[in-house]
Design a binder for these strands. Structure first.
Ligand SMILES: [Zn+2]
Ligand SMILES: [Zn+2]
Length: 733
DNA sequence: AGCACGCCGACT
DNA sequence: GTCGGCGTGCTC
């Protein structure tokens, strides 16, 4: 079909087509399309197999390696101007190369939902309503017979209104429709506030001032700062003032947060400070909202973009500053599809686009601290808490041989009581949700197992069921042991529900909040909890890690870690780093403001080096020791690591495939470990295995991984088997 | 991943 | 007879 005319006479372009295939696809530019209109970063519609798809132009191709008879022509050019500027194309190309992910799946991450579908980019303004000429001609007291319509008319007579503002004013869409039907009003676009102003800053401490100045001095070029600031030291104020400087130079600022739940309070703080367009981008928004925010960011209309990990890919017309808050947080690492670290992409982006990058954390990652040591990042430290509040005191409770109620020792319960008696609040951290971690037969040791995973089932009370926390499978609570028939079944390990029940009985009448993924289902429950927390009355908060993320608890003076041992013997090489970060983050919730805080750790291993010293030493001292250990053991940040993972319908199939890949790799520049079954080999009915790759240098790792992927691609793929690679994996289990 | 083609079992 | 099961092969 394409071959009626000598194809070589037409120009050829390489395109990123949305497909998991790890290559670009070449297309001809037909006669009816001006080759000048086909620019890199433009979207085009192309035939692909038997269907038409949206693709992005990568570059011109002088000599295609594809059989000329197979080349097809582009169907249509979808954009007059490229949606991705050359720097952004370079970033997306880097992501594809670095993470060894198909280019056709990487490029669309820089597009909004409607752009991915091939639709025109969204217009920037907010959808709104304005009066027609006829509506403008009405007298001020018109529509008296219909008070709601009159109210809307009055609002519109003042000025055109965004639909969201009308909703807030209590005007239903029905009223809007009625005015439109009467030809008094029409839908329109309301442009955002064009001002880029910052309100007065809070007076900074000398440390904050130093940090702000250091960041300010590097604006306009690439520099990465690590803002190492203990909880309550005012990192956000540093962000605000650095951003104020950035937008004063009419460059845009991008602030990344590790999870959606942190955006509302950050946005509130930003709206208070800035009279400037702020765009929020995360997966909790509707497609339309994302489309509009995306357009505003790319057009340079948005002064500030606040978003979660995927927002690192949003095009910005004039990027000036990229901030990654809580940079140590695992939420920046995507765990499926393209396995990227938004923090690492942010740093690369800053480097390519000459932006200043700020990584902020109270517990910086080992990688970032190492980058400071190597002189790649500049360290900015905040060591004082606002208002001079003192750091919490920490103590371990040795619970060996103690009678526990709901996992709580008498000492813990007594300290909770004292805290409440002083009119203060207590926060208790339990590692698991549900009532108990497992169910075991007292007579034969049988443990209730998930049908689809190599994992035990957790006991839940509301409703009463056994539930797998890895796949969601659940069953009723058995009355008898499934192995010996005995009836003495006992729950093992404590979950949030159990501690909650004990606390409710011990402290009747005291406000008690449980925060885990079972109670924090909707947006409403989260909001309700956060407003409850601001209530100064004595209260107990109990929950999982969810409770530790970034939130402010001004009245909490006691933090209890109910089962500190849970993270103690994690075989992953990042286990200790995780534990340390968790302990310091949890402790950071205690004693803000003028009340000193205390932290209690319940443990059966009080002699464990981390438990014994954590929270007495500074985080940085403990982290330095972990870095030292990593160097001794030759683990990241020394050299580089990657994993090829496999999931399949049988374990042998996965291991066999990885073995075959390993056999065909004759590398000396890297070390291959495995293949080995994953820590939980069977999960949701799939068997997981992995091949770990370690190399002394990034370059050697990239080389090895490229070959590894090429080998795996060339191998026939057994049905039901999936493989993928994970560069800089956050866990190797 | 889609989406086709293709070749064998149980339904109108 | 054909509706449909998913094996395997291809996409510029
Ligand atoms: Zn038994
Ligand atoms: Zn399961």
């Amino acid at each position: 079909m394409a071959g009626h005319e000598p194809p070589a006479s037409r120009p050829i372009v390489a395109c990123a087509v949305q497909t998991p295939l790890r290559r670009a696809f070449d297309y001809l530019i037909p006669h009816n399309i001006d080759p000048g209109a086909v620019m890199p970063g433009n979207r085009v519609q192309v035939p692909f197999g038997r269907r038409q798809v949206v693709a992005l132009i990568l570059h011109r191709v002088d000599v295609s390696t594809v059989d000329p008879m197979k080349l097809k022509p582009i169907t249509a050019v979808l954009d007059e101007q490229p949606l991705l500027d050359p720097l952004h194309q370079q970033l997306m190309r880097w992501v594809s190369d670095y993470y060894l992910h198909p280019i056709g799946e990487v490029y669309p991450l820089a597009l909004s939902p409607c752009e991915r579908r091939g639709e025109p980019p969204a217009s920037m303004g907010e959808p709104g309503l304005k009066l027609t000429l006829r509506g403008q001609g009405l007298p001020e007291n018109a529509l008296k017979r219909s008070p709601r319509q009159a109210q809307l008319l009055a609002l519109l007579q003042a000025e055109a209104q965004p639909l969201s503002a009308l909703r807030d004013a209590g005007i239903s869409t029905g009223i809007v429709r009625q005015l439109i039907a009467k030809d008094l009003a029409v839908r329109c676009q309301i442009d955002g506030n064009p001002a880029w102003n910052a309100g007065p800053p809070l007076p900074p401490s000398s440390e904050q001032q130093e940090a702000i100045s250091a960041i300010r001095d590097t604006l306009g070029g690439y520099r990465c700062h690590l803002l190492d600031g203990i909880t309550g030291s005012g990192k956000t104020e540093v962000y605000l003032q650095a951003i104020a400087s950035c937008i004063a130079g009419s460059r845009q600022a991008l602030l990344l947060l590790p999870e959606i739940g942190l955006t509302p309070q950050m946005l509130a703080r930003f709206k208070e400070r800035f009279d400037a367009p702020i765009v929020v981008l995360h997966s909790g928004l509707s497609d339309g909202e994302r489309d509009r925010g995306w357009s505003a960011a790319r057009a340079g209309k948005a002064a500030i973009v606040i978003g979660t990990r995927s927002a690192v890919f949003v095009p910005l017309a004039r990027p000036g500053l990229i901030i990654v808050d809580e940079e140590h947080d695992a939420g920046y690492s995507q765990q499926d599809g393209l396995r990227y670290s938004a923090r690492d992409v942010a740093v690369k982006r800053g480097h390519l686009a000459d932006c200043t990058v700020v990584l902020g954390s109270a517990t910086p990652s080992i990688e970032s601290l190492d980058n400071v040591n190597r002189g790649r990042y500049q360290l900015l430290r905040l060591r004082q808490r606002a208002g001079g509040a003192s750091l919490p005191s920490a103590r371990a409770i040795d619970v060996r041989g103690l009678a526990l109620r709901g996992g709580l020792s008498t000492e813990m319960l007594d300290t909770v009581r004292q805290t409440l008696d002083r009119g203060e609040q207590a926060l208790l951290f339990v590692h698991r949700r549900g009532f108990a971690a497992g169910l075991q037969c007292h007579d034969c040791g049988w443990v209730a197992q998930c049908r689809h995973c190599d994992a035990g089932l957790a006991v839940h009370r509301h409703p009463i069921r056994l539930r797998c926390h890895h796949c969601g499978w659940n069953r009723d609570l058995p009355g008898h042991c499934q192995h010996c028939g005995g009836s003495r079944l006992a729950s093992t390990g404590v979950g949030t529900e159990q501690s909650e029940a004990v606390l409710a009985a011990q402290f009747p009448g005291t406000a008690l909040y449980r925060v885990d993924s079972d109670t924090m289902t909707g947006k409403g429950s989260r909001d309700a909890f956060h407003s409850a927390v601001r209530d100064p009355a004595p209260a107990i908060m109990i929950g999982t890690q969810m409770l530790t993320k970034g939130h402010h608890f001004p009245r909490v003076t006691l933090v209890g870690v109910v089962d500190a041992d849970n993270l103690l013997f994690n075989p992953d090489f990042r286990g200790e780093e995780r534990l340390l970060q968790l302990l310091y983050q949890v402790a950071g919730r205690a004693g803000r403001g003028d009340h000193p805080g205390q932290v209690l750790l319940q443990t059966r291993h009080p002699e464990h080096p981390i438990i014994a010293r954590a929270l007495r030493e500074e985080y940085g001292v403990m982290a330095a020791e972990i870095i030292e250990q990593r160097y001794q053991r030759g683990l990241p940040p020394v050299g580089a690591m990657a994993v090829m993972r496999c999931d399949s319908t049988s374990l042998d199939q996965g291991i066999g495939f990885l073995q075959q890949v390993k056999r065909e790799m004759n590398t000396t520049a890297s070390t291959l470990i495995g293949p080995l079954p994953a820590a939980m080999a069977r999960r949701a009915g799939r068997f997981r295995s992995q091949l770990i790759v370690m190399a002394d240098t990034r370059r050697a790792l990239a080389l090895a991984m490229n070959t590894l992927v090429a080998v795996a691609e060339a191998l026939p793929r057994p049905s039901g088997l999936n493989w993928f690679v994970d560069i800089d994996p956050i866990e190797t289990l």
